[in-house]
Amino acid sequence: MQHNVKRVNISAELKKLKLEKDQLKIKRYQELTAKLFDLRDNNTYTQDAFNETTTLLLMNPEFYTVWNYRREILSNIYKPVGANVDDYAQVLNDELQLVLQQLKKFPKCYWIWNHRRWCLFELVALHRVNWMYEFAVVSKLLELDQRNFHGWQYRRFIVENIEKESVAKDPSHEKVILLKIKLDEFDYTTTKVQSDFSNFSAWHNRGNLIPKIYKLVHEIEVPAEFKERVKLFDNPYDILIHELDMIKTGIYMSPEDTSIWSYYNWLLTDDFFTKAYSKEEYLKVLHNQLEVISEVNELEKEDNGQDNIWCLKSIIFTKTLINKQQRGEVLTDEIKSYLKILIKIDPLRKGKYEDQLRGVVGIV
């Protein structure tokens, strides 16, 4: 009994039966692979070959060569030459359903996502694509796994195409349309990070959206319906303070979470923020953050008896930014003492800290 799970002893007979079953599967897989490679080499594009690719891809969705062959078959036997597009559109939509079932099982397989994109662009050429349906699909997939970066990447791809389609329908209101869509996406990231501060993809998406929304807000006369939603984007300093306040809860709750600290580093170093206000304002922000992180680190020391690795790294990071602004010595004795502590409590990154101590590698 380990971890309250009863250990099951498999008899020699059952092991033998399982091995025989696995060997049959392996043999079938190898035979089917050889057959499909031979068919492709001979430029064979038939319904039977298409069905065989389905069988093999259900066994191994990572087999990108078979996905390529499947697309060749689709293009050669289904793609219409003339105006009759109904049958091909139906085949492509059937493909989307197959892909969706595979994504539910293998949500991090590049080749499945890639095939879905290909199907969509084929539907674009037929003027039969439904981007809003795809948006609903990826939203549902992100509910199942909200940190899947493939899903977030795909969502950005879908949103970009929704933007293009929406603007094409009403080009005279391009920037208002884009503003609404980006604000909706920004609100979506807010929901996701508030439910899980370790959602790196949500933070990343948020960071990409902020300068784009800011630019749009200052390029147009914002409609009354958006006035309240865009108040945050009056100036970069207000955005910075808002975002730092937002991640403060995450820092207190999960100071070891790398997603929060990555976003923190971006906020304090990106030109969008650092070039938008005075040196005095910047130093005030840095000193305030130093107080917050130092307090969290002290709480961690009380609980665990030692400095928190990420808090200490961020104290070093923030103090270095302060030193650079004051144009004093960057690698001070204080920072060196912190690096020596990190060498002891974080031995896996010992080499990096030693390089920083020698000044071979920068801290910021």
Rank of each mutant, 00 (worst) to 15 (best):
His173Lys: 14
Glu174Met: 10
Glu174Trp: 00
Lys175Arg: 13
Lys175Trp: 05
Lys175Leu: 14
Val176Ala: 00
Val176Thr: 09
Val176Arg: 00
Ile177Met: 01
Ile177Arg: 01
Leu178Cys: 10
Leu179His: 05
Leu179Tyr: 07
Ile181Met: 11
Lys182Cys: 03
Lys182Phe: 12
Lys182Pro: 00
Leu183His: 07
Leu183Cys: 12
Phe186Leu: 15
Asp187Trp: 01
Tyr188Gln: 13
Tyr188Gly: 01
Thr189Gln: 09
Thr189Val: 11
Thr190Phe: 05
Thr191Gln: 15
Lys192Arg: 12
Val193His: 00
Ser195Val: 02
Ser195Arg: 09
Asp196Ala: 10
Phe197Glu: 09
Phe197Lys: 04
Ser198Tyr: 00
Ser198Asn: 14
Ser198Leu: 02
Phe200Gln: 12
Trp203Gln: 08
His204Asp: 15
His204Ile: 00
His204Glu: 12
His204Val: 00
Asn205Met: 11
Gly207Ser: 14
Gly207Val: 02
Gly207Cys: 05
Gly207Gln: 15
Ile210Trp: 09
Ile210Phe: 07
Ile210Met: 07
Lys212Gln: 15
Lys215His: 11
Leu216His: 02
Val217Ile: 04
His218Gln: 08
Glu219Arg: 07
Glu219Met: 10
Ile220Glu: 12
Ile220Lys: 11
Glu221Gln: 14
Val222Leu: 04
Pro223Val: 06
Ala224Ser: 15
Ala224Ile: 13
Glu225Ser: 12
Glu225Tyr: 06
Glu225His: 09
Phe226Asn: 01
Phe226Ser: 01
Phe226His: 04
Lys227Asn: 14
Glu228Ile: 08
Arg229Ser: 13
Val230Thr: 15
Lys231Ile: 09
Leu232Ile: 13
Leu232Val: 06
Leu232Phe: 06
Phe233His: 13
Pro236Thr: 11
Ile239Val: 15
Leu240Cys: 12
His242Leu: 05
Glu243Tyr: 06
Glu243Trp: 04
Glu243Asn: 12
Leu244Pro: 06
Met246Cys: 08
Ile247Cys: 02
Ile247Pro: 01
Ile247Ala: 01
Ile247Leu: 15
Ile247Ser: 03
Lys248Cys: 10
Thr249Ser: 02
Ile251Asp: 05
Ser254Leu: 13
Ser254Trp: 00
Pro255Gln: 01
Pro255Arg: 06
Glu256Gly: 11
Asp257Pro: 01
Asp257Phe: 00
Thr258Gln: 13
Ser259Val: 02
Ser259Asp: 02
Ser259His: 01
Ile260Ala: 04
Trp261Gly: 07
Ser262Tyr: 08
